[in-house]
Design a protein around this nucleic acid. Structure first.
Lengths: 219, 219
DNA sequence: AATATTGTTTAGACAAATCTAAATAATTTA
DNA sequence: TAAATTATTTAGATTTGTCTAAACAATATT
C-alpha cells in the first residue's frame, strides 16, 4: 500500500497514543499532530478505507493489524535514523528527532535493512526506545516510570517522552542525558518540585512538569 | 526560502537542462519531469514569484543566481547521499539514484555538512559527477566525451548520463561500471554499433544508443 | 430530567500541484 | 507570405490535505 507522508504521520501518531486497547480520540490526535479535529475526522475516513484503522463515528480510532504493522515500520525507520545521526554523524540526542521525522518517510525496505545492519542491528535508539526488527518485533520496553512517580531512590535515565527541542536542550544544559544516574533527594508536594542529585555535582531542583517527561528505572 | 519538494525538483531539473545560457523550454522541462507543459507553465509563474528563475511567456526559463545556488544545494545533497549509499551501505552504483532522489529533500545544512565530513568530503559521486561544496563550488568535470564520440582508443568510464534502471542494470550485467577500462576495437558506421574490449574478457558489441550515455576519458 | 458543556462531524471553502481541452503564439514549410 | 505545424499558455477541473463555522452527539452539571 502506498501511503502519503501525511497518512504515515497519522498512523504513527495513532500508534503512539494507542495504549492497550483504548481507542484514540479525535481531539487527542488533533492535538498530537498539531491540527484541527475536523481534519482528523477527514483523514480517519481515508485510513478506514485503506483498512489501516477501525473507526466509527464518535467511537474513536484503533489500528488494525495492518495499521500496526505499518506503524512499526515507520517507527523502525525513525529510530534507526536517530541511531545513525547520533552514532555516525555525532549529533547529540536532542537534535535528532526532527531530522528523523523526515528521513523516516523514505520507504525502502532494502535501505532500512542495510542501515540497520550497518549500525549493528541496534535494539534501542538514543532516547532509549526499542527499535522494531524487520518483522515488527520489538524488545519489551524495560520497566520504567516517569521521574515524578519513581519509588526507588537511585535511578538511571532511560528515555525522555516529550522531545521538544526546548526540553531536550534544557536537560542537556543540566547535564541530564540518557544513562545519567541520579538520586531523588526530596519531593516537595507544596510547590510540585523535585530535588535530585547527580554524581560529582550539586543537587538541583526541577519541576514535576519536567519530571513527568523523564523516564527512569531503578539502578 | 522554504521550497516544496515539487519546487525543488523543478529547480534541479532546470539546472540540469540549462547548458550555458540557453533558456530551458517548457516542453523539455515537462519531458524531463514526466509531467505536462501546462503544469510547467503554472510552476514557472510560481518560481518566478520566488525569484528563482527568469521567465517570460514563450521565452523559456533560466535560473537566477539565487536559483542556481538552490540547485547546487540540492545537487550536493543528492550526490552525497549517493556516496553514502554506495560507500557505507554497499549499494551498487545503479541502485542509488532513486533513493537519493528522496533523501536529497531533507533540507538541513548541518546534516548535509556532517554527512560530507563523515564521507571524507568526497568531490565526485559514484557516477563520476562532481559534488558541490558547502559554498556551491564544484570541481570542473574532467574532460570527458560520450563513448560514441571518443577519439582515443584506451578509455576509462567516468559517468553514465541516462540513469534509468534498465540501462544501469544492463551495463552492470556486461561488467561495465565506473572506472572500468576499455578499448575501442571498431566503430561500425553501417549499423551504428561499437565493438569494445575490456581486460580479461572477450570483446563485445554495443549500440551507439547505449554508447551515447557512457561518458569516458582517455586513460 | 433539563440544561450546559465538551467532543465530533458535516458542509463548504482554500491552496498546492496536477490534469485536459481549447486558445493563442511562434516557427516551419510550401 | 500564407498555411500548416509545433510550442506554449489559459481556463476550468481534480485530488490531497487542510481550514472555519455551524450542526449534531455525548457527557457532565444543576
Amino acid at each position: 500500500m502506498n501511503l502519503s507522508i501525511a497518512e504515515e504521520n497519522y498512523v504513527k501518531a495513532i500508534y503512539k497514543l494507542q495504549e492497550g486497547d483504548t481507542a484514540v480520540t479525535t481531539n487527542a490526535l488533533a492535538y498530537e499532530l498539531d491540527t484541527k479535529p475536523a481534519s482528523v475526522t477527514d483523514m480517519a475516513k481515508k485510513l478506514k478505507d485503506k483498512q489501516l484503522i477501525d473507526y466509527e463515528k464518535y467511537k474513536g480510532i484503533t489500528l488494525t493489524a495492518e495499521g500496526r504493522k505499518t506503524a512499526l515500520q515507520i517507527v523502525r525507520r525513525h529510530r534507526l535514523w536517530e541511531c545513525f545521526l547520533v552514532d555516525k554523524l555525532a549529533f547529540s540526542w536532542e537534535e535528532v528527532h526532527e531530522l528523523a521525522e523526515e528521513l523516516e518517510h523514505v520507504r525502502s525496505e532494502k535501505l532500512t535493512n542495510r542501515l540497520s545492519e550497518y549500525l549493528g542491528n541496534p535494539t534501542v535508539d538514543p532516547h532509549g526506545d526499542p527499535i522494531p526488527d524487520a518483522h515488527g518485533r520489538m524488545a519489551k520496553p524495560r520497566p520504567q516510570t516517569s521521574l515524578d512517580q519513581a519509588n526507588a531512590k537511585r535511578l538511571v535515565v532511560t528515555a525522555v517522552t516529550d522531545q521538544s527541542v526546548a526540553l531536550l536542550a534544557f536537560l542537556n544544559a543540566k547535564g541530564i542525558r540518557l544513562g545519567t544516574q541520579l538520586e531523588i533527594v526530596a519531593h516537595y508536594e507544596y510547590d510540585n518540585s523535585i530535588e535530585i542529585k547527580m554524581k560529582h555535582a550539586p543537587s538541583l531542583t526541577i519541576s514535576e512538569q519536567v519530571a513527568k517527561n523523564i523516564m527512569v528505572r531503578p539502578v
